[in-house]
Design a binder for these strands. Structure first.
Lengths: 366, 366
DNA sequence: CCACTTTCGCAACGCTGTTGCCAAAGTGCA
DNA sequence: TGCACTTTGGCAACAGCGTTGCGAAAGTGG
């Protein structure tokens, strides 16, 4: 760690606090208290941020007997990022500002099996569509993006992949994507940095950026069952960036067979119960898996999302909550709360944009 | 992050590399490469470490055509720590040097149910017993330790507790310890900093300090079943420092009742199989739990330990390994290796000492 | 013996956050 | 209205961080 990284570290720290403060803003002295830096250091760093256009003064607080504190806020328009949710049958693209607010979106049908060239071209067009007019001036073959305030493009898609290298492992049902270097291919076509990740990780990251503090698990129950883990504000991806395989956790030894080849996986049991219309059992099974996870990691909160959960949100929240409450009664501690994940349908695309914004605010090892 | 924390951060970084290098030592240029610092910065920092007596020159490497590199090594005697393993029927105390080598140990029978005063006195005596002669000069009522090179005492014991505040939650079978502020009570009696943690976390930390790199899970199968999780070199304790509840992970919905009040816990199934003499089934059940953990966290390696594992190490390693290999075949990735944890009986006490040494080397949020 | 390579320390430097001090901008009482 | 007081925040000087430039030290090889 040298002085340059110290500088950017502290700048990112302050930017993160400015982002968290949102539209209300935050004063220099509050920033000093929260970071442990001296007020004068905060003044210096925020002066640099104001010079760069990333922060601005925004009114002042009421006086407490002396000079009133000047409120600082993030300038959301100073930069933006694009998030792409690449699903099996459609692509969703959003453009967000520094605060994470959606300032443009686009949605298009897509056949993930149509071949990599067709898919990449469709993504390129959809991304170009959310950019401000004039950004797309290059030739169809060349880089699509010339806008210098665009920090990058984050892409989220289902299935295991190598987040570090940006290479897909498998996309269920589409073997032609095995081993495809998605990040490199897209970065070349778009001309900006590209980050790829699993859809569940993107959704979890979006929740973290959206104000969810501490450590939590986002459980996504849709056509499959997966999890995104956030530990201490950062997404936990594991040694080979394959963490979050929640659905194929075995909770019924020698139980009914699962598509993965094992038996008694949460996913198989849970989706089986859903198919039978037994949502109570589905929620109980999901809760058992969640309780295992809570015991292992001691997280703050469990968040539920996905199409299947959306069909009966209260039933799932209550059912999973009941299992966690029973567990809490046994251990003698407060139960870990269960809530519905905010954001709904567009959460993955918005979270994908956070793959790019995260490093700006000191998240995600950037 | 200010300049003082920057300084100690880089110093800890170098100390950690010196420790990892062990007796062979490491040259300044290698340190520079591994830290990303310039060689000159490494020279300055190591000069300070040598002034403080923490590092020393130790010979030189063969020349590669120019001046040979000077080898630096950690001075193990520059500081030491005491680790206490407080078990239900005995207390084990070790004193280790900076390198983690045991330089003194003591073992005494102990009744954890004999009341806090008796237990604390016994711990105090055992700790005093491993200290160099002359350290224990204070009156029986006053602080026991006057040795300034003693960095602190780490205490590991079974059962859930609050690592942050040093307060016990419950010790199974000994309700009189509920809510006992062990850290404060011991710190007062010993006169040095005290850190308390679960025995499984201490063992895992000891393995990490003993050369185990990256992320791993230590599974301890003895009278109970628990886990210590190390993620990126640091012990993961979770929001309320209760992480690692591996044994009460449910892997058999509505299965046989467990002592915890739930049904189908790994611990109940595994120990039940052991009681029946069916070690193959015990290993398979343990492997199922380990596979769930591996999928969720994507760790590098699974390490097994504990008295029950020690009765048939090969059977457990092979049985758990088989489950993980089957999982790897399904996902198409390399199997996560399973190994026997090094250290054996004394591992927990040695690991407890690392609770104190960890922060010196930049581990554990110190 | 001398040219060459490589390591490593001294000195000067740029930059970090910190400290001391003072102007700015309020409140509140006489 | 005026003045003392409180609180904020900028300017300037500063100590200390890692970096750069350069030269001495300590080897190898012809």
């Amino acid at each position: 760690m040298n002085l340059l990284s110290l500088r950017s570290h502290n700048a990112a720290l302050l930017l993160d606090l400015l982002r968290t403060a949102g539209g209300e803003g935050i004063s220099r002295l509050e920033l000093a208290e929260r970071t442990g830096l001296t007020p004068q250091a905060v003044s210096k760093i925020t002066a640099r941020l104001r010079e760069d256009g990333l922060a601005a003064e925004a009114g002042r607080r009421a006086s407490t007997g002396g000079k009133p504190r000047t409120v600082l806020r993030l300038v959301p328009e100073a930069g933006h990022a694009v998030g792409v949710h690449l699903d099996r049958d459609e692509v969703r693209v959003v453009r967000v500002d520094l605060r994470g607010t959606v300032v443009g979106q686009r949605r298009a049908a897509l056949d993930l099996g149509a071949g990599s060239e067709a898919v990449l071209a469709a993504v390129r067009d959809a991304v170009a569509g959310v950019l401000p007019a004039g950004s797309d001036e290059a030739s169809p073959e060349g880089p699509a993006v010339l806008d210098p305030s665009l920090l990058g493009v984050g892409v989220a898609l289902p299935g295991p992949l190598d987040h570090g290298r940006g290479v897909l492992h498998r996309v269920t049902g589409f073997p032609e994507w095995d081993g495809f270097p998605l990040r490199a291919a897209l970065a070349e076509r778009l001309g900006v940095p590209v980050v790829v990740d699993k859809d569940t990780n993107a959704a979890a990251l979006g929740l973290a950026a959206g104000g969810e503090r501490g450590s939590f698990a986002y459980l996504h129950l849709g056509t499959g069952l997966g999890a995104g883990l956030v530990i201490g504000g950062n997404v936990h991806r594991g040694a080979r960036t394959g963490a979050g395989e929640f659905g194929h956790q075995v909770i019924q030894l020698d139980g009914p067979p699962c598509t993965c080849g094992d038996r008694g996986c949460v996913e198989a049991l849970c989706l089986g119960a859903v198919a039978r219309g037994d949502l109570g059992e589905a929620a109980r099974v999901l809760g058992a898996g969640a309780a295992n996870l809570v015991g292992l990691l001691d997280i703050d909160v469990v968040l539920l999302g996905g199409r299947t959960v959306a069909t009966a949100p209260e039933a799932f929240v209550a059912g999973v909550g009941a299992v966690l409450q029973a567990r809490a009664r046994r251990t003698g501690q407060d139960a870990v709360p269960v809530r519905l994940a905010a954001g709904g349908d567009g959460a993955v695309a918005v979270g994908a944009a956070q793959l790019v914004l995260g490093p700006v605010f000191g998240r995600g090892g950037g």
